[in-house]
Design a protein around this nucleic acid. Structure first.
Length: 692
RNA sequence: GCCAGCGUAGCUCAGUGGUAGAGCAACGGUUUUGUAAACCGUCGGUCGUCGGUUCAAUCCCGACCGCUGGCUCCA
């Protein structure tokens, strides 16, 4: 993220000087990229070119569409610039001079040009009065830039352009879209190669690829819809195991489970405050027609129809009966309108009839006629849980009340946002809402954090950070519910818990949820890729909006604080993460197929022995299968290994005679033969303890 | 939603302005096995959808749908 593009996050010159050596190399490489592009396309207009997490980019406006096929010749020019070993010279200028140079097209350019450097002009405007304005020059290329850079272009050890994307100028979708050229650079070739090796590994572990190979899930865009994954039996097995883990953990921690429907009336989300904030990312409402008159429908219809339709509307309006029978469905509606049209000449009757069927219902819908109930698919579970809280009178003795549910939510994510399981439109949340008194907050919140850490341990997540998102004064009443004192109080409480628990966290201002501060949990998979796994929030706003109360010791009614928490996030994203984390090689307890019995030969006694083992395993809820096909044992092993079956029991005549099982573990090979009972009891123990 | 690239069998991929192939998988046989692929055969595609250009389109053009990479968004 280019912080320089966001006024509220503008880096100070001091911050910039903290750039690491690697960031300087990359930032300098961005300048070299611009230099090269200008040699090829002198009219290029540059915007911003910062270092980013894995490299750098430069945003450029250019009539030529740069594609990866252009990379070799751009890289060729870049190499020349690096070989020339020009120094990066810092030049301090007065604002007037900078404006003048930008207008003459000199900034982000190799020389003066006929058109101004328009984006550089825009960048200049963002530099506050009093801050030093500097250029950096390498060879002929002069750029408005706060630096810092490496000493000379030759200090850029190894680089490569990686991809092209588009980006809005200053990240604002109202601004023009620029071409963003991405690249990466390292001190030397070895490190560059390692980086690309890591990318290869990530690609190999891609959850979409492994998910398909292992038969975990499919996304049936034609019949179900994009972003609506179907869990296949093997994927559902993982879902079930995660739920089991969550349910056990939450039960032990004093949670109670609830179950709520997938939709609710509009009133729910007006009350919660979600509708005004998030309407566009909720699925559009379903409208349930109540009894009533049709005249409102006709009005809505008039406004958008052409002449014939107008005519029909006039006719309808003129002679519509006062009393309209109840209409609950399209069938009712068509029937009613059909009867009504009988009084017209046949030709008109048919035209009206067809129109009414096709257009009136489909386009205008039944909205507006009489009272309409609008139902929304839930995009979050909290309001339903609030209503459960409200369902019974509550006393301080009931608190903390921890309502947990694996609730299915639906969010209308923008089409361009959908990514495999990582970003979906239907999601199963490991959700719970903790209603507590203010004095209980610290211990409850701390217990939630402890739960996170417990899970990290189970899944071998070693690197994580809690992003503590807080409000901002300027967002009060707009982005955030207008309760400045409550915000401060809550944020202070959360911060204190984080500090006391010595948990690894960073504070990020102005990114809170609208109803309270939140914590996003970022975790890194074993190959070092970052995932936003879970989020939990402190909510002082919704309990008020829903007028939730409990009777306190002193016989007064008080509003509880609500903690939203979802340590395992959603099944979709969490399993997506786990697939990449484990490269599909799940630990035994999570493995979709825990055991496959492979027989050598098909003598009846041998098959009986193998089947008895299968039955015993399944009796203990082990996900076991048997392969009694006539393939050679090597073929059976090959297929089981490819499917990443965790444990293979190879059963041949020798095993039958000695009452043993030859065990082979995926990725570890043949472990030899062990007495049957011992093998099974060890296996059961490993599953039970969720051993890695 | 925006920009760009892509869309051929269940999967991995060839291929052409004259209506398509391979390997694996699946299915049917034969084979009877000791730690990563036994053999033979069969089935399988309106080349994403719709429209246009053309005597002729899977191929060229357009729109739409979807996917991928970014941007914006993320309760």
């Amino acid at each position: 993220m280019d912080a320089a593009n966001r006024p509220e996050e503008r880096k100070t010159p001091d911050d910039r000087q903290k750039m690491t050596e690697l960031e300087r190399i990359r930032h300098s490489c961005a300048h070299v990229l611009a230099t090269a592009i200008l040699r090829l396309w002198p009219d290029a207009q540059f915007a911003a070119g910062p270092p980013v997490e894995n490299g750098f980019y430069y945003d450029v406006e250019l009539s030529h569409r740069i594609s990866p096929e252009d990379f070799p010749k751009i890289e060729e020019e870049m190499k020349k610039e690096i070989k020339a070993n020009h120094p990066f010279e810092k030049i301090v200028v007065a604002r007037e001079q900078a404006v003048k140079d930008a207008q003459s097209g000199r900034l982000g350019a190799l020389g003066a040009r006929s058109v101004p450097s328009r984006y550089k002009l825009g960048n200049l405007e963002d530099i506050p009065e009093g801050e030093q304005i500097t250029y950096y020059q390498n060879g002929d290329f002069i750029d408005l830039c706060a630096g810092p850079h490496v000493m000379r272009t030759g200090n850029i050890g190894a680089f490569k352009l990686t991809h092209v994307a588009s980006a809005y100028y200053k990240g604002d979708e109202k601004n023009p879209q620029l071409q963003r050229i991405y690249g990466t650079a390292f001190k030397n070739k070895t490190q560059l190669d390692e980086y690309f090796k890591m990318l290869e590994e990530a690609k190999r572990r891609d959850h979409r690829k492994i998910g398909a190979e292992m038969g975990l899930f499919v996304i049936d865009t034609e019949y179900v819809g994009p972003g609506l994954p179907l869990w296949l039996p093997k994927g559902a097995a993982i879902v079930e195991e995660l739920e089991k883990l969550a349910k056990e953990t939450e039960f032990a921690a004093g949670y109670v489970r609830v179950k709520t429907p997938h939709l609710a009336k509009e009133k729910m989300y007006l009350t919660s405050g979600h509708l005004p904030y998030y309407e566009e990312s909720m699925f559009p409402p379903m409208r349930l027609q109540a009894e009533g008159k049709l005249n409102v429908t006709i009005q809505g219809y008039e406004s958008q129809m052409d002449a014939l339709k107008q005519e029909m509307a006039e006719e309808l309006k003129k002679s519509l009966p006062d009393e309209v029978p109840p209409i609950h469905s399209q069938k009712d509606f068509v029937e009613f309108v059909g009867n009504f049209f009988r009084s017209f000449p046949r030709e008109k009757q048919m035209a009206f009839d067809a129109l009414s069927k096709v257009i009136l219902f489909n386009e205008v819908g039944m909205a507006g006629a009489g009272e309409v109930d609008r139902y929304y698919l839930k995009a979050m579970n909290c309001p339903h849980h609030h209503r459960i809280f409200a369902a019974e009178p509550r006393s301080y003795r009931d608190l903390p009340l921890r309502l947990a549910e694996y609730g299915t939510c639906y969010r209308y994510e923008q089409s361009g946002e959908l990514i495999g399981l990582m970003r979906v439109r239907s999601l199963n949340m490991n959700d719970a809402h903790i209603y507590c008194a203010p004095e209980q907050f610290a211990s409850e919140f701390n217990a939630v954090n402890e739960m996170y850490l417990k899970y990290f341990k189970i899944f071998g997540i070693e690197k994580y950070v809690m992003r503590f998102s807080t409000s901002s004064p300027q967002g009060m009443g707009k982005k955030y519910v207008n309760e400045p004192e409550l915000w401060k109080k809550t944020e202070d409480m959360v911060r204190q818990v984080l500090i006391d628990s010595k948990i690894n966290y960073v504070e990020v201002p102005n990114e809170a949820a609208f109803y309270g501060p939140k914590i996003d949990v970022q975790a890194w998979s074993v190959i070092g890729r970052e995932f936003s796994i879970a989020t939990n929030q402190v909510d002082f706003a919704q309990p008020r909006s829903f007028d939730l109360r409990y009777k306190d010791r002193d016989n007064t009614e008080k509003t509880p604080i609500c903690i939203h928490r979802a340590p395992l996030g959603t099944h979709e994203r969490f399993i997506g993460f786990l697939i990449e984390h484990y490269a599909g090689n799940f630990p035994l307890w999570l493995s979709p197929e825990q055991v496959r019995i492979l027989t050598i030969g098909d003598e009846p006694e041998l098959l009986d022995y193998a089947r008895a083992i299968l039955n015993e395993l399944r009796g203990h809820q082990v996900r076991a299968e048997i392969d009694i096909s006539t393939d050679k044992i090597n073929g059976k092993i090959q297929r089981a290994e490819q499917m990443k079956v965790h444990t293979m029991f190879v059963i041949g005549k020798r095993d039958l005679e000695a009452k043993v099982i030859s065990v082979r573990v995926h990725g570890r090979g043949n472990l030899g033969a062990t007495p049957r009972d011992e093998v099974i009891s060890t296996l059961l123990e490993q599953i039970k303890t969720r051993a890695a």
